[in-house]
């Protein structure tokens, strides 16, 4: 059994890691070789021109800006709102608290479907609008459950002592709840950031203006299109890069953009793995 386990997990891990390694070594290899599929295990003819040229792809800098903005803004807002609502829903005094809590949480279990949702967004003028990425994601029932559970575990005396001192609801929130909830909020932040970065469907449904396209979306378009982006990039490239081995091909552009889109996740994930695991654990207990 030991041998079987080691072989099984070696193969599975290889299958999970190798594809990214393969694409990466191809992006730094001779572009003529990568186009022919001649680079499999080790990079050949190493150069980094692809990553310099990637910035010449029309629209990519803007898409990176949109992706980063929605990730940062969306994450900050959902963390604050989840912490605040999780805290407020532990209040003993709020008017009809139980009802409003259920009103929010039950939305996890249904959705109206993409067309009613799209038409709502259209009526709110949120199509072709950056806020279309942000506003629907501010309140997240699942994260609220997580923070509420966490705040409930903070000792009540701590909160009540502050209230006796005359601190209002908001001051207790900012000065006590927020700092104490850091562990759960980091978990939520990391989940939300990955979600925002990976989001694809909302661009597909809501946005037709190129200036609002995200990296995920333009990557998808590059994979679909047969048009020759490489020609545009090569034309605008400096003379040194016009060397055959470093001239862009369709494959080299697709691979380079893939790595650029995947890199933030690949770099961040191993360091934050424990936050992810913690998130799913708390969710499993209280979901």
């Amino acid at each position: 059994m030991d041998v079987f386990a080691v072989v099984f997990f070696s193969l599975f891990s290889f299958a999970c890691v190798y594809p990214f390694y393969y694409i990466f070594i191809n992006t730094i290899s001779d572009n003529k070789l990568s186009e022919r599929g001649a680079v499999t295990w080790f990079p050949k003819g190493i150069h980094f021109q692809n990553y310099i040229d990637a910035f010449r792809i029309p629209g990519i800098a803007n898409a990176a800006f949109i992706s980063v903005s929605r990730t940062v803004v969306g994450t900050v807002l959902v963390v604050l709102s989840s912490a605040f609502l999780g805290y407020m829903f532990t209040s003993d005094t709020m008017w009809k608290k139980k009802f409003w809590y259920r009103f929010v949480v039950i939305t996890m279990y249904f959705n109206a479907g993409i067309i009613p949702w799209y038409l709502t967004m259209m009526n709110l003028k949120l199509t072709n609008n950056f806020l279309g990425y942000i506003l629907p994601a501010i309140v997240s029932p699942f994260y609220i459950i997580l923070t509420k559970t966490y705040v409930e575990s903070i000792s009540k005396e701590l909160r009540e002592a502050a209230q006796v001192d005359g601190a209002g609801t908001l001051r207790v929130f900012f000065q006590i709840i927020l700092p104490v909830s850091k562990p759960i909020l980091s978990t939520i932040a990391i989940f939300s950031a990955v979600g925002q970065w990976n989001s694809f469907q909302d661009t597909l449904l809501l946005m037709t203006r190129e200036s609002l396209f995200t990296l995920q979306f333009i990557l998808y378009r590059y994979l679909q299109s047969s048009s020759s982006l490489s020609a545009i990039v090569n034309a605008s490239s400096s003379s040194a890069a016009a060397m055959v081995a470093q001239a862009q091909t369709q494959t080299s552009i697709r691979m380079t953009v893939t790595i650029i889109v995947a890199l933030p996740i690949l770099l961040v994930y191993p360091f934050f793995q424990r936050y992810f695991v913690k998130g799913i654990m708390i969710g499993a207990v209280k979901g």
Binding site: F20, I23, V194, N198, Q216, F217, Y220, Q273
Partner: peptide, 20 residues
């Protein structure tokens, strides 16, 4: 760590990996 990474990349990236 290796086995959980693919869960955190988007379907577009999975498709791209498949494609490439």
């Amino acid at each position: 760590t290796a086995a959980t990474i693919p869960n955190f990349i988007s379907w577009v990236l999975v498709y791209s990996v498949a494609f490439l």
